[in-house]
Computed example of a mutant assay.
Amino acid sequence: MSNKVVLYIAMSLDGYIARKDGSVDWLFDVEGDGGDNGYAAFYQTIGTVVMGRTTYEDVLKLSEDFPYADRPTYVLSRSEQPPAPHVQFTTEPVESLIPHLQQASDADVWIVGGGQVVQAVMEKRLLHEIEVAIIPKILGEGIPLFPEGIVPSNLKMMGTQTLGQIISIRYQVQI
């Protein structure tokens, strides 16, 4: 299985991926590289998208069009959800779902978020790479990228990239 499970996400300098209310408005006025800060190139490597239900609901608030409609997208939920366009809700545990998705695709599996999904995937040692875009803002509070109780992990830096005021760091998770 050569395709990877990748977390690709932006966070504030103090480690938050969203405000307490789930808002990511603080991401939109950051001086990047003038383009999409590498997003399109990253997205081309993705075969499947996985996110939590709260993240899914936040994504719906950001855009009229679902941004991942062209990829199979799985939304993890603790309870049954009514069908929705462009996504498959699932209560399947990540330890069985993620390997199944890796086998079903020729491309990488993107863990979009949020913190609880990241925690579950890391706890089951399913994550291969983490790419974090560090946004030069301090929020002071919010939803942390790595919630309290996350499994300790060692990472190996694979590269960095400066994108205007943003620093992107890519790590390999040492499993």
Rank of each mutant, 00 (worst) to 15 (best):
L127S: 01
E95D: 15
H100F: 08
G114V: 04
I134K: 03
M51V: 09
I98K: 02
I135Q: 10
V75K: 08
Y68V: 12
T162L: 13
S77H: 12
H100M: 14
V132M: 05
K137S: 12
Q103E: 15
D33V: 03
L97D: 12
L27E: 01
T73K: 12
G140E: 12
E141N: 13
V75I: 14
L163S: 13
K61E: 15
V117I: 15
A40Q: 07
S77G: 13
G164V: 09
G47T: 10
I143G: 05
D70W: 07
S79C: 06
P99M: 12
Y68M: 13
Q102G: 06
L97Q: 10
A41C: 00
G140S: 11
G164E: 09
E80K: 09
Q116D: 07
P93F: 07
I143D: 02
V121N: 02
T45R: 11
V109C: 11
S105R: 11
V50M: 07
R53W: 08
G32V: 01
E131H: 04
E64I: 06
I46F: 10
Y39G: 00
M158V: 08
E95R: 11
V109Q: 08
E141G: 06
P144H: 06
G38C: 06
E92R: 11
I134C: 03
I150P: 00
M157W: 00
P82K: 09
L27V: 02
N154F: 04
T160K: 00
G34Y: 02
S63N: 14
V118S: 03
A69V: 13
K124T: 04
Y74A: 07
M122Y: 00
K61S: 15
S168P: 00
Q44G: 09
R78H: 15
L101R: 10
Y74E: 10
K137F: 05
R78W: 05
L145M: 12
V121D: 03
S96G: 07
N37C: 09
V49H: 06
G52M: 06
G115R: 04
V94F: 05
A107F: 10
K61I: 10
A69T: 10
H128Y: 03
P85D: 13
A41E: 15
Y43K: 11
I111V: 15
Y56P: 10
P83F: 06
V132Q: 00
Q44P: 04
